[in-house]
Simulated assay, not measured.
Amino acid sequence: MADETVSLREAKPTDAAALLALLTQLQTETNAIVYSNLANMTVEREAQNLAQIARSNTGIILVATYQGKLIGLATVMRIEGDANAGELGLAVLKDYWHNGIGSLLLDEALYWFVNFAQLDHLVLDVYKSNNRARRLYQHYGFVEVAECTIKDSDGHDQPAVSMEYQGIEEL
């Protein structure tokens, strides 16, 4: 992968089938990915969702591609019931872990949040045991604000940490 380029871009309606395939594969690689209605989602409905999100300034889906294949994504979606807060999601296929792709996606999602989003707060929940992800989020300006539990893909409660983006001070 050293000689190849990973590209980042906003997801388009034409990505619907590939995005659904990516989400399906991600669910098999980790119990941290939970998309409750994925089994019932059609390509047509996903394309409509992507078009609607693209018109929004309260949500974005970014995808990472490698050799024409979707290999990761970052999402910021407005939290239902809170017009001022968005939730960050980040996932990369296991074969591409530890190559900086998560950092690239996170950096781009934060750039969008700071410069374009009509949201005041950006939050996420991460498993307490996922120290690597927690350090990544802290490096990019997230602070731990509370302990919580989140359900994994098997429906079991897992200890987690809620984090909120506080920004990175300029040097």
Rank of each mutant, 00 (worst) to 15 (best):
E10P: 07
A11I: 08
A11F: 04
D15Y: 07
A17H: 07
A17K: 12
L19H: 14
L19I: 10
L20C: 11
L20H: 10
L22G: 00
Q25N: 04
Q25W: 00
L26Q: 01
T28C: 01
E29K: 02
T30F: 02
N31W: 02
A32I: 03
V34F: 07
V34S: 02
Y35A: 03
L38R: 08
L38T: 09
A39V: 09
M41R: 15
E44L: 06
R45M: 09
R45Y: 07
A47T: 04
Q48K: 12
N49A: 10
N49C: 11
N49M: 14
L50K: 04
A51L: 08
A54D: 09
A54H: 10
T58W: 00
G59D: 12
G59A: 15
V63H: 00
A64Y: 04
A64T: 09
L73Y: 11
L73D: 05
L73H: 12
T75N: 13
V76D: 00
V76N: 04
R78A: 14
I79V: 15
E80N: 15
G81S: 07
G81A: 04
G81V: 11
D82P: 04
N84F: 06
A85V: 05
L88R: 01
L88M: 10
L88H: 03
L93I: 12
L93D: 03
Y96D: 03
Y96E: 02
W97P: 01
H98M: 09
N99M: 15
G100A: 11
G100Y: 05
I101P: 09
I101D: 06
I101T: 13
L105E: 05
L106V: 03
D107Y: 11
E108V: 09
E108T: 15
E108N: 15
A109W: 06
L110Y: 00
F113I: 05
F113Q: 07
F113W: 05
A117Y: 06
Q118D: 12
L119I: 05
D120R: 11
H121D: 08
V123D: 01
L124H: 03
L124N: 03
D125K: 05
K128H: 15
K128V: 02
S129V: 13
N131R: 06
A133E: 06
R134C: 12
L136A: 01
L136I: 03
Y137W: 01
E144Q: 15
E144R: 07
V145Y: 04
A146H: 07
A146Q: 11
A146S: 13
E147N: 13
S153V: 09
G155A: 14
G155Y: 11
